[in-house]
Design a protein around this nucleic acid. Structure first.
Lengths: 106, 106
DNA sequence: CATAAATACTTCGTGATACGATGTATATCA
DNA sequence: TGATATACATCGTATCACGAAGTATTTATG
C-alpha cells in the first residue's frame, strides 16, 4: 500500500492493537500483518510517540531472561480511537468525491 | 482533519477535481473546499508533482490579461484514480480492524 | 556442536511532503 | 484610496515511514 496513505492510519492501528490487551512490540507487528505491514523501526518510533502523547503506558518486565516492554492503552489513547471514527466520516466524504462516476458516461 | 491522514488522499483528490473538466489551481481549491481543504502552496506543489508524473497536462492561456494555467487529466492520471480504488479495499480492512468493538463488552 | 533463524528492541540517516510565511501582480469593489 | 479577491510561486520547517545496521538472547536445524 502507498506509504503516504498509511501515515494517518498507523498510529491508530497500533492503538487498536493494544486496546484489548497489554502487548509488546514484536507481537504487535505480527498481529497487524494481515491488516497493515510496518517495519520494526516504524513501530518502535510510533510506540515512543504514543507514549510521549500519553496514549500508552509502558511497563518493562522480564520474559525468558530478557526485558520486554509491555504496552497498554490509556484513556487518552481510547479517545484518539474515537476521534479517528469522527475523521472517518470526512474520509468517506472524500472517498465519494474521488470515486464518483461522471454523470454523463455510465 | 489530521494532516497525516490527508497525505495519501490529496493527490488523488486533485486528480478527481480535474477529471471531469479542464480547470485551474485557484478553482480547484474552491471546488474541493467542501470535501478537503488545502493551502495554495500545497496545491501548486501537488500539481507540479502530478505533472512530473505525467498524470496531468498543463496548458497556459490568457484570461483577463493574465496567464492562467489550465490542467487536464491524462490516462496515467485516470489509472491512478483506479489504483486508489484498489487501495481503498485495504483501507476498509484497516478501518474495520480499528473500529471493531471488543467481543466481550457490548 | 555449529550455524541459522527467530525473537526483541534500538539508533541513524534519508526522502517525501503539507504547511505557513512571504512575494508578485492584476482586477474588482467599497 | 484601500481592501479584498484572483492567481501563481518560492522557501524553510516539521513530521514521519523506512531501510540499514547494530545488540543480544533463544530456538531450531544440519
Amino acid at each position: 500500500m502507498d506509504i503516504q496513505l498509511k501515515r494517518g492510519l498507523l498510529d491508530v492501528c497500533v492503538l487498536a492493537a493494544i486496546k484489548d490487551e497489554e502487548t509488546y512490540g514484536y507481537k504487535i507487528i505480527k498481529d497487524m500483518k494481515p491488516y497493515i505491514e510496518m517495519s520494526e523501526s516504524t513501530l518502535y518510533t510510533i510506540l515512543k510517540r504514543l507514549e510521549a502523547a500519553q496514549m500508552v503506558n509502558i511497563r518493562s518486565a522480564e520474559h525468558n531472561g530478557r526485558l520486554r516492554k509491555y504496552y497498554s492503552i490509556t484513556e487518552t489513547g481510547l479517545k484518539r480511537i474515537d476521534e479517528f471514527r469522527d475523521d472517518w466520516k470526512e474520509i468517506m466524504t472524500i472517498y465519494r468525491f474521488v470515486s464518483r462516476e461522471d454523470q454523463d458516461n455510465e
